[in-house]
């Protein structure tokens, strides 16, 4: 099944590359994993609602490193994780947060989220700062770095070592952005496809989760036996 999709993968890759020069982006930066696992024509056809074209290249490349196509199991691009993130940010994500001041941004981590920002603001500000940092450090935008260099940037972002203050952010640091990005990437990978990611329920198939079947009276007492059926989704698709 995967092999038969090879042509569409290549087609997608090629058309992406045709689109990229318009943004000043060249072919060099896309990882082998992108080439190998980008099989989703819908990702190609997708026009982001929340992200700008430049931000979108960052999200695509970052997701591709967080859950790469290499190795066993589908990657984030093959499962449309970036679409999930875009759609969530374009929806009411964050509207539930209590955002009244005053804010103590130096509070201990045990007291939880204390930033004066919605997730949408965190993404915008952070992507801009990271891209500026990549320019200063590598003379290159993130999407065009090679995979090892991208991993290195993401590790620094995760550790809070990409200094956002140099780029005009006096409150926001790179750490909370990374944890949001990682959480959303995992969620998009493993949530029901109704939210845009987990395309074809591929992540569920890979790990052996039956999705929304939600009826196991006959199964519960069958111990240590592999469950034989594939997943179903909320919209009734079967994998």
């Amino acid at each position: 099944m995967l092999l038969s999709k090879q042509t569409s993968r290549r087609k997608f890759l090629l058309s992406s590359l045709i689109a990229l020069p318009a943004l000043g982006v060249t072919m060099k930066g896309l990882s082998a994993a992108v080439a190998a696992e980008m099989i989703a024509p819908s990702l190609e056809a997708y026009t982001p609602t929340f992200f700008s074209p430049a931000e979108w290249t960052f999200i695509m490349s970052a997701c591709d490193r967080l859950i790469p196509g290499e190795g066993r199991g589908p990657g984030a691009l093959e499962t449309n994780v970036p679409i999930f993130i875009d759609q969530q940010l374009a929806s009411d994500l964050g509207s539930e947060i209590y955002l009244e001041g005053p804010f103590d941004v130096n509070a201990p981590a045990t007291l939880g989220y204390q930033l004066p920002f919605l997730p949408q603001q965190i993404y915008r500000k952070s992507i801009a700062a990271i891209e500026a940092w990549c320019q200063d450090t590598h003379r290159q935008r993130f999407a065009l770095l090679d995979p090892a260099a991208q991993d290195d940037v993401l590790k620094k972002v995760q550790a809070g070592e990409v200094n956002f203050t140099a780029y005009g952010e006096d409150i926001l640091t790179s750490k909370p952005f990374f944890s949001e990005l990682l959480n959303h990437t995992r969620q998009g990978y493993l949530a029901d496809p109704i939210y845009g990611g987990n395309k074809g329920m591929k992540a569920w198939i890979a790990i052996g989760f039956p999705g929304a079947r939600a009826s196991y009276l006959e199964w519960v007492a069958q111990h240590n036996v592999q469950y034989p059926l594939g997943p179903v989704s909320l919209s009734g698709d079967r994998g």
Binding site: R65, R72, G73, D151, R186, A203, W204
Partner: peptide, 29 residues
Amino acid sequence: TGTPIGTALPAGTPEWGQGWKESMNDWYG
């Protein structure tokens, strides 16, 4: 519950990258 977001993985599993993905494949359930 066995819902997959937040699945516990063995100590030492990387938080992201190929290692995380394969660990999900190997250890879910």
